[in-house]
Amino acid sequence: MTVPGNWYLILSAILFSLGVIGVLVRKNVIVMFMSVEMMLNAVNLSFVTFSRMLGDIGGQVLVFFVLVVAAAEVVVGLGIIVSIFRRRVGVTADDLHILEG
């Protein structure tokens, strides 16, 4: 392995920050959800990198569990989005200002 693990971790940090910016900037809830998935992927990448750096298979197993939880999260989240927007025409988070206190 010629590429040092730090490079992977830096790439993972960059991808995570892109996800953070996406959640904060975008107003389309589906795109915000995609940004959350991107953050999960960044964390998965760092898990695999740590698994390689420490010589331990546990990191890869943890990524496996994260994948399962992400799949369940997407199913429930998109179900909520569908059930909200079936009775609305708006697609952005601003259209959900009924949630304001």
Binding site: Y8, V48, V74
Partner: peptide, 30 residues
């Protein structure tokens, strides 16, 4: 990058679950 780091199983699962299922679900909803 997973394959590059000797995580072949996760690379396959990543493509099957994420690119194959989750993104298709996103596209369906869109």
């Amino acid at each position: 990058l997973f394959i590059e780091q000797n995580a072949q199983f996760l690379a396959a699962v990543q493509i099957i679950v994420y690119a194959g299922a989750i993104v298709v679900l996103f596209l369906f909803v869109i």
